[in-house]
Nucleic acid binder design. Structure first.
Length: 857
RNA sequence: GCUCGGGUGGCGGAAUAGGUAGACGCGCAGGACUUAAAAUCCUGUUUUCAGUAAUGAAAGUACGGGUUCGAUUCCCGUCCCGAGCACCA
């Protein structure tokens, strides 16, 4: 090896060496504590990685290497989220099979990842499009299909339990989370046809066939999830999206809404992500109250979070999509209502949201406010959503902005019933008073009660009078699980002659070859054209495929035992590796992958497959690296920086170090080509600590106190930084140490060797090389992490244990000119009182970082 | 509109159980080496004022208040930027 720092040579050499010796291969080792550090696996796109991608991978690799050096058995795998739309779009355009292009892309990703020297155990690589993998995705789907959610035991239970319940008790005493059914007796259940029974069970299965309004994208010929639609256009491609009724598979995620909410409190995630999930789940507590429609026996059920305002409910509004709308309309108003409802249906979401003025039509009917006994008009308006609550509201214009706007537009009655605690409302109201810290008035028995108490009192009254009951609502919707696409997991489902879905065995149900990847355009998947695959002796196969998030909702479990052909992972592997200790990835998956993974984990926990019910204990969201122009890096802007090029020019260690040096991991920041020069220079200086010109210069001399101080300061700093994931300041610490040791011309083995270990997680290649040049025969990556010794950090000072403001501080160091024998020090509050021995007056000394900065006589 | 973050030199950013603000890097300026350049190394670099200079003084972490011996850090108010949610009753 030459005396110059030749990174290309060094990096190639050690990457090969690590591969040959399988240095990063791990297996279960009961004698070591485990640590599981995981990156969000990438979708292997055709354009490869840019310098933004590795940011999180570098951070997790540093932690993985650090934990190994600290004696942990570290699981640090990588894989590919390989099913998805881009490969399929590419297939439609070129006719190339998605499996072929995906495999090519994976090879490219693998090469790029290897160049950067990550310590993955590649034997554990998973690909979601591999039948060996997706047979278990199908199996988990089958488990969802075969289970229902028992609200009493608060967990998923086998569907056979539910059938037994129906056989013994009918629909009585049912605590199942699910859809609405008509009551039936055990005898009636037994007399039902298979199809009738199926229709009832379908209301409770956790994987079920749902008839819902879906986001239909005509251009792509497929259904999209809510999060794939932005402002009425598809996220990918920007095609228009319309609402359409369709039957498709869904997962009953709402059964887990409460647990998904409360589980957040146990996690070390950023507040931002937790908040996004909380908003998404959208729990709100209130009451459902029945309003009798005047002159009929019918009732309109409303959901409200503000039953305390019910004395001010002066009209009602029903959603135009309500199915039995006509029942709540007078004959003469029906044509107008119907016209309005039709118009609302065809109005796109984007129009509806953009329109701030309220529209609506009177139904011609009135309902009775149960609290006041007064008749109030019933209106139809599209500001009320059919799929939230009951699709009907009681409008309290005095205390709700939307109701106020509506009442103003149509000149409806406004009755204030809540006023501020210490003042009066200004009448007539100019805007709704929606604050929750008010007091009731004009409200009969609620008068004088503060809002919070009045809510409880109103609900109590409602329940006693039999008008309704307390109710919790969620914004969270069932998770649509079908896509009319080719490149995804096929469902393990066939439909028999009666159209009843049946599970298929054995798994996997492999994806067949097709002539064309194009969607049929009538809403069916390209698979429906493969008749020899679709038609089986047991019936017709389901031709939809699973959505992109299916495979990614459990892959972290598969890494523990990726080659297992019998089960998704062995009990032994799962109980050893357990949940992910540290998960690193982008925040854009907050309401998708991160929520679904939690849902699947809780389900598998209920079934006893795993013993923990949260997948990712600690989550860190790395920021984005922008182009130098501040734009997001993309081909479109022509501002993509390729990591291969950077590695070729500066080396992988420099790239790794520089990406960490750019700023806090979680911040977004621009890539700056000049900045990398500084890190590159640093490696030159670092190398020259070991070489004097051409000459190897490391000596065996004993380090001086000053040198040990530099070393131990660095150990302390870097250790704390890695624990808190502040990698940017660690890089600074290495630079400082290198500069200081360079100034001291310190070439002592004891110091340099320890410094190498500290830097090994950041710059694995150069440290490995110098480590071996120092004469070590085993890899630096299995060395032990150094501990710092505080005694080296104190110099020319006396230290006294003291306490400040009642809190104990271990020690405070300070410098004094007088010798210790001359003074006597005591501590009062935050002040150190130093008394001279020879009867001089008391003086108070104010300490700042161990130095006396002020003297108060 | 609501909910979270965040405003520090020319730039990226350090420093918060309150304690010498501006670490480290970039850029810039000057110097050494060189015939010259590159590379490398050294020095300086918040602002203002005073001084030939070493140096000294004052101000300074978006703005205005407060608590404190002491505030970038804690509290109240204002402004600005970013992210998320957005007719969810």
């Amino acid at each position: 090896m030459s005396a110059q720092y030749s990174f290309t040579e060094i990096e190639n050499k050690w990457q090969k060496q690590w591969e040959n010796t399988q240095l990063y291969r791990v297996s279960i080792d009961a004698n070591k504590p485990k640590y599981y550090v995981l990156d969000m696996f990438p979708y292997p796109s055709g354009s490869g990685l840019h310098v933004g991608h590795p940011l999180g991978y570098i951070a997790s690799d540093i932690v993985a290497r650090y934990k190994r050096l600290n004696g942990f058995n570290v699981l640090h795998p990588m894989g590919y989220d390989a099913f998805g739309l881009p490969a399929e779009q590419y297939a439609i355009q070129t006719g190339q099979h998605p499996a072929v292009t995906t495999e090519q892309n994976i090879q490219r990703f693998r090469e790029q990842l290897n160049i950067m020297g990550f310590s993955y155990d590649w034997d554990r690589q998973v690909k979601t499009c591999d039948p060996n993998y997706y047979q278990f995705t199908q199996q988990i789907f089958a488990l969802f299909f075969e289970h229902w959610y028992n609200k009493q035991s608060q967990k998923a239970e086998p569907i056979s339990n539910l059938i037994a319940h129906f056989e013994n008790h009918g629909s009585d005493q049912l605590h199942a989370h699910g859809g609405k059914i008509e009551a039936f007796t055990p005898q009636e259940w037994k007399a039902m046809s298979a199809l009738q029974q199926h229709n009832i069970l379908n209301q409770f299965r956790l994987a079920f066939i749902d008839e819902t309004t879906v986001n239909w994208c005509e251009a792509m010929g497929t259904v999209l999830a809510n999060e794939e639609v932005i402002n009425g256009l598809s996220e990918r491609g920007g095609y228009p999206v319309v609402r359409k009724k369709m039957k498709q598979w869904s997962l009953r995620i709402t059964a887990y809404a409460d647990r998904l909410l409360s589980g957040l409190n146990t996690l070390q995630w950023s507040d931002a992500i937790k908040e996004i999930q909380r908003n998404w789940i959208g729990k709100s507590q209130g009451a459902e109250i029945d309003f009798v429609v005047r002159g009929t026996l019918k009732t309109l059920k409303v959901f409200t979070t503000r039953p305390d305002t019910i004395f001010g409910a002066t009209f009602m509004v029903v959603a135009p999509e309500l199915e039995n709308l006509q029942e709540f309309c007078s004959e003469d108003q029906w044509p107008a209502v119907q016209a309005y409802a039709n118009k609302a249906k065809n109005r796109s979401e984007i129009d509806r949201m953009a329109d701030t003025t309220k529209t609506g039509v009177f139904t011609g009917m009135e309902a009775i406010n149960p609290f006041t006994g007064e008749p109030i008009p019933v209106w139809v308006s599209d500001y009320v959503l059919a799929n939230y609550g009951t699709g009907v509201i009681m409008a309290v214009p005095a205390h709700d902005e939307r109701d106020f706007a509506f009442a103003t537009t149509f000149n409806l009655n406004v009755i204030p019933v809540i006023k501020p605690v210490n003042s009066e409302l200004e009448l007539p109201l100019k805007e709704a008073f929606s604050a929750k810290d008010g007091v009731c008035f004009n409200s009969g028995f609620l008068d004088g009660l503060p809002v919070k108490e009045a809510i409880g009192a109103a609900i109590e009254k409602v329940e006693k009078a039999g008008w309704g009951q307390a109710k919790v609502n969620y914004k969270l919707r069932e998770a649509g699980f079908g896509r009319q696409r080719y490149w995804g997991e096929p469902f393990p489902i066939v439909y028999n002659e009666e159209g009843i879905p049946q599970l298929v065995n054995p798994l996997p149900v492999e994806l067949p070859q097709v002539e064309s990847y194009k969607p049929t355009g009538n809403g069916e998947s390209p698979l429906s054209a493969v008749s020899q695959w679709v038609n089986t002796p047991h019936g017709k196969r389901e031709t939809d495929t699973m959505p992109g998030w299916a495979g990614s909702s459990w892959y972290f479990l598969r890494y523990t035992d990726p080659q297992n052909t019998q089960e998704l992972a062995s009990k032994e592997a799962l109980s050893y590796w357990q949940q992910v200790d540290l998960y690193v990835g982008g925040s854009e998956h907050a309401t998708g992958h991160l929520l679904y993974s939690r849902f699947w984990t809780k389900f598998l926990y209920d079934l006893g497959y795993i013993t923990w019910d949260e997948p990712f204990q600690r989550l860190v969201n790395q920021g984005m690296i922008m182009g130098e122009d501040g734009q997001k890096m993309s081909k479109r802007w022509g501002n993509v920086v390729n990591p291969d090029d950077v590695c070729a020019q500066y080396g992988a260690d420099t790239l790794r170090m520089y990406e960490m040096f750019l700023g806090p991991l979680t911040d977004s920041k621009p890539w700056n080509t000049h900045g990398i020069e500084g890190v590159s220079r640093f490696f030159g200086k670092f190398w020259r600590l070991f070489y004097e010109g051409e000459q190897w210069a490391v000596t065996q001399e004993t380090p001086t106190a000053a040198e040990l101080k530099i070393l131990h300061k660095t150990i302390k700093k870097v250790t704390e930084d890695i624990e808190s994931m502040s990698f940017n300041t660690s890089v600074s610490a290495f630079m400082v140490a290198t500069n200081e040791l360079g100034t001291l011309k310190c070439r002592k083995k004891e110091v340099l060797e320890t410094l190498l270990i500290l830097m090994a997680p950041f710059a694995p290649h150069i440290t490995e090389e110098l480590w071996s040049q120092l004469g070590n025969t085993s890899s630096i990556h299995i060395a032990s992490w150094p501990k710092y010794d505080a005694s080296h950090l104190v110099e020319n000072s006396f230290s006294y244990p003291i306490s400040i403001n009642g809190k104990t501080r271990a020690q405070i160091e300070f410098e004094l000119n007088a010798s210790e024998a001359d003074i006597q020090a005591t501590v009062l509050s935050h002040e150190l009182v130093v008394k001279w021995m020879e009867g001089k007056p008391l003086k108070k000394f104010i300490l700042v970082k161990g130095r006396i900065i002020n003297v108060v006589v």
